Amino acid sequence: MAKAGEKSERATSLENELSCPVCLDLYKDPVMLSCGHNFCKQCIQKVLDSQQQFPASCPMCKIQLGPDFELQKNFQLCSIVETFLATNSKGQHEDGSEDGKAVVLCDFCLEKSQPAVKTCLMCDAYLCQAHLSKHSATASQQDHVLVEVGTGSVAEERRCQEHGKLLECYCRDEKLYICLLCCIAGQHKGHDIITLKEAYDEQLGELLDMETWLQGRENALNTALEGLQKSEQQLKTNTKTVSSQMEKLFEQLKTEIIQEKIRILCDIESSEKEELTRISKVKEEMKKRRDEAVEHLQSLQKMREQPDVFHFFKEFKLIKDRIYSQDFSIRTMDVAVVQMDEAWIACYQHSRENFMEEMGALLSLVQRE
C-alpha cells in the first residue's frame, strides 16, 4: 500500500508539472515562449490577445516577447504528456472506457468487443485493428473512405447535410460535392455531375497546370531578378568609376586654379615691388633736393646778417651760382594701380556661369551614356 501511495504521489507531482499554468489542466498542444515558459496554445493565445500593452509579455515572468515573436510548439513536452496519458492510473478501465470519455467499440467483434481505431464512412461502421485489416484486404472495399475514430466533425463534412448520405459526386455547374440522391431527385438533378475520382483527376490536372505556370513565373522572376542584380552591380561600378574620374578632374581643376591664383598674386606682388622701388627712388631724390633747398635757404637767411657789403655780394654770388646749377624741379609719377572694377567682376561672373553650365551639360551627357 505504501508503494501504491508513493506511486500516486509521484503521478500527481508529474501531472502538476505537466499542467498549464493558465487552465491548470494537462497541456493541450503545448507551446513554449522565448522566456522558456510553456502553455496550452489556446490558453496563451487568449491571454496575449487580452493584454492591452504592446509588445506582449509572458504572464508568468512578465518578460516582453518582442514584436515578431512566434508560438513554437514544444514537441518534446507534447510527447511527454501523451506518454503520461497512456501510462497513468487514469487510463482505460477493464470495461473499455476511459476517464472522461467513452471508448468506441468495434461493430464486428462478436464476443469481447475491441476499441475501434477507424470509421468506414461507406459502411457506416467502426472497425478495430483486426477487422480493419480484413476490411482493407477486400478488393471491393479498398476505395472506402476511412477516418479516425472521434473525428465527428470530419465525418459530418463528408456527408450530405440534406440526405445524410456520403458525398460521392461532384456538381460541375455549382462546384459542390453532393450525394447520389442529390443527383437523382435533389436540386442538382439534370446538372453536369461527375464522380469524386473524376473531379479529383480534373483538379489534379489543374493543379499540375498551375504548378507549371508558377514554375515558369518563378523562373522568369528569377531571371528578372538576376538581371536587376547585374544592373545594380553595373550601376554601382559605373557610378564608382565616374565618381573617381570626376574627382580627378575636379582635383586637377582645383590644382590649376590654385596655381593660377598663385601666379596672379605673384605678378601683383612683383608689380607692387617694382612700383614701390620706383617711388622710393623718386622719394630719395625729392628728399635730397628738399634738403639742399633748405640748406641754401638757411644760407640766404644767414646772409641777411652780413654787415660787410663786399662780402655780401661775393657770398651771394657764390650761393646763387650753386642754386642755379642745381635741379630743384618736382617730379611726379603715374603709379600703375591694380584694381578690379565692376566691368571686370561682371566679366568674371559671366565666364564662371558659362563654365558651370558647360560642366552641367557634360555631366548630363555622361549620365545618359
Rank of each mutant, 00 (worst) to 15 (best):
R304D: 08
H191Q: 01
W344T: 15
F316H: 12
I345V: 10
C58R: 01
F328S: 09
K189P: 02
E198K: 10
W344S: 14
E369V: 10
F313V: 10
E295N: 15
L235I: 07
L146P: 02
C123D: 09
V147I: 13
D209R: 03
G186W: 03
K236C: 05
K281S: 14
M303R: 12
Q349W: 04
Q234W: 08
L318M: 11
C169W: 03
K7Q: 15
R290Q: 09
A343W: 00
G186L: 04
L24M: 06
E285T: 13
M1N: 12
F108A: 10
K248R: 13
D327I: 08
S34V: 02
R331A: 14
E274H: 06
L365R: 15
D173L: 01
Y324A: 12
L363I: 08
S243Q: 09
L181K: 09
C20K: 01
D99E: 12
A4W: 06
L235C: 09
Q252L: 11
I80V: 07
R159D: 01
M356A: 03
F310Q: 15
L132A: 06
L204M: 03
V145G: 05
L18V: 05
G96Q: 05
D107Y: 02
T237W: 10
E15T: 13
P30C: 11
M333I: 14
S270P: 00
C120A: 05
H135E: 05
K281P: 00
M210C: 06
E369F: 15
P59D: 04
E111N: 12
Y324N: 13
F75W: 11
R331Q: 13
C171H: 00
G164I: 03
E111R: 05
A220Q: 04
Q245F: 03
Q229R: 09
Y170T: 00
M356H: 09
C61E: 02
D321M: 10
K248M: 10
N219G: 10
F312N: 12
D291S: 15
G205P: 00
Q161A: 15
Q52Y: 05
E15C: 08
N222W: 00
S140T: 07
D29T: 08
P21N: 11
V366A: 04
V145L: 15
E226K: 11
R159H: 08
G100Q: 02
R217T: 05
T237F: 08
T237D: 09
K7P: 05
F250T: 06
C182R: 02
A155K: 04
S133L: 08
H350K: 10
S79K: 14
L214F: 01
E251T: 10
R172W: 01
S89D: 07
M356K: 09
E9S: 07
T239L: 13
V22L: 04
D95I: 03
E156Q: 13
H296L: 14
E168P: 03
F310H: 14
Q52W: 06
H135C: 10
E206C: 03
M122F: 04
R368N: 06
S34Q: 07
I257H: 13
C347F: 01
T138K: 07
H350R: 02
Q339R: 14
D209C: 11
K62G: 00
T255I: 07
F312S: 12
L127G: 02
S136M: 13
R159T: 08
H296R: 12
S97I: 06
P30Y: 07
E274C: 09
A185C: 10
E315R: 14
R290D: 15
Q215K: 10
